[in-house]
């Protein structure tokens, strides 16, 4: 499967989705002008991955900040991941960022995927 690799910018996150090397990570800031458009390739990649997924997948979210339009798309990403067997979410937050911790907890209540919370 092709690797999806997007460099982070001041308003979009860095994204690496690499099946072969088992790297699945969204990190940085997410406040794009058009969040649906920005996350479209991510959702398409996950849909493809779902039909040929690795036995287990550790999907990392290491976000510094995201806006509300992105939060809806993050939920869409999580919902897409929900159907894949062996999925686990690693939700990172800065140790004094209780809002990011709470956001992760809320997402974990909205989807049926195991979440592990970690500080960085």
């Amino acid at each position: 499967m092709e690797i999806l690799n997007l460099e982070g910018t001041e308003d979009t996150p860095k994204i690496i989705l690499d099946k072969k090397n088992g790297i699945f990570e969204i990190s940085g800031r997410s406040l794009p002008e058009d969040s649906a458009e920005f996350y479209r390739p991510v959702l398409e990649w996950i849909a493809k991955y779902g039909s040929e997924a690795n036995p287990s997948t550790d999907f990392v979210f290491k976000l510094e900040y995201f806006n509300t339009a992105s939060s809806k798309l993050i939920l869409d990403v999580l919902s897409a991941l929900e159907d894949i067997k062996g999925m686990k979410i690693h939700w990172y937050f800065h140790e004094d960022d209780e809002d990011m911790e709470e956001a992760g907890q809320e997402f974990s209540e909205l989807v049926e995927i195991p979440f592990e919370f970690k500080t960085y």
Binding site: S35, T68, A69, K72, L75
Partner: peptide, 23 residues
């Protein structure tokens, strides 16, 4: 309210999720 909206919302034509004021 936040969870209620995020579960049911779709991104509008203008690109919003209807969550800004709640947030």
């Amino acid at each position: 309210l936040y969870k209620e909206i995020i579960k049911n919302t779709t991104i509008s034509e203008k690109g919003g999720a209807g969550l800004g004021f709640v947030d």
